[in-house]
């Protein structure tokens, strides 16, 4: 029998209850998804069952993973952070400005690092050949951009509000609107790929990918805030979303950042 939203809702609730019991029993808060989160069905065969081997980075400050690839001006063009100006015409949809800071766990800005984004167009369609659901492509919108964080750790994109879209996790599955982010830190250990959501999306309760983050406070950190000060008069609506990178880094001491 086809898997229904009701089936997935029950699984999401069971995972949430189990997590709350773990925390009540003294287990640590889980900031990241469990890779084996089964309500997201694609995870079932794609997560390791053996525990990872822990590496205490303080024992070897020379680990190459404590450094990060370098990015510079030649890796970026001036228009790369404006997804509305990559084609001859204007894309369809509501223009938005997304801005935030890239920080480490100590709250320090992460400077000069690469932030890449990709997203669906305003109709919820990706410019990807394997995405063939019944929604129009926009010849004036590809939906991919990149930028480097500035001296205060800020990134900024101009783009179009992405639409929600259907997928085949279960019958009538819809993803809440989101922008994919890929971010580099000061060390390879801080690498992050994630998704930014928009406030008050009615699809939140139904989405097993968002709920793979079982901690409510952690989930809330995936949701941008509408920020009127970022809205550009007669042009775009502003959203603020700070990104905090997890994972150890050794170079902050020498760089004094």
């Amino acid at each position: 029998m086809a898997l229904t939203q009701h089936d997935i809702d029950k699984e999401i609730a069971a995972e949430r209850d189990a997590y709350e019991q773990r925390v009540a029993g003294g287990a640590p808060v889980e900031h990241h998804p469990d890779r084996g989160y089964a309500p997201y069905r694609s995870s079932v065969l794609r997560h390791p069952k053996r525990p990872p081997v822990g590496i205490d980075v303080t024992k070897d400050p020379e680990l190459v993973e404590l450094s990060s690839p370098a990015w510079g001006e030649r890796d970026i063009t001036e228009l790369d952070n404006d997804l509305t100006r990559q084609h001859r015409g204007e894309p369809v949809g509501e223009r938005i400005t997304v801005e935030g800071r890239l920080l480490d766990r100590e709250g320090r800005p992460v400077r000069g690092q690469l932030v890449e984004i990709w997203q669906a167009n305003s109709a919820g369609r990706y410019a990807h050949q394997r995405e063939q659901h019944d929604a129009p492509l926009d010849p004036n919108f590809t939906g991919a951009g990149r930028t480097l964080t500035d001296d205060h750790g800020f990134y900024r994109f101009t783009t179009i509000q992405p639409g929600p879209y259907p997928w085949r996790n279960h019958t009538n599955a819809w993803r809440p609107a989101h922008i994919h982010f890929s971010v580099f830190g000061r060390s390879f250990t801080q690498r992050l790929v994630t998704q930014m959501y928009f406030p008050n999306d009615p699809l939140f309760p139904y989405d097993p990918i968002l709920h793979a983050v079982t901690d409510q406070a952690a989930r809330d950190r995936l949701v941008a805030a509408y920020d009127h000060n970022l809205s550009v008069p007669e042009f775009s609506l502003g959203y603020r979303w700070d990104i905090v990178l997890d994972g150890p880094s050794a170079t902050w001491m020498e760089e004094g950042r």
């Binding site: 990241h32 100590e106 394997r130 994919h180 992050l192 994630t194 998704q195 983050v213 952690a218 997890d246």
Partner: peptide, 17 residues
Amino acid sequence: AVLPTPSQTVGPFYGYA
């Protein structure tokens, strides 16, 4: 200290980005 941004899957459609 600040709390980390959770990870999310790269998904199926990163191929053009």
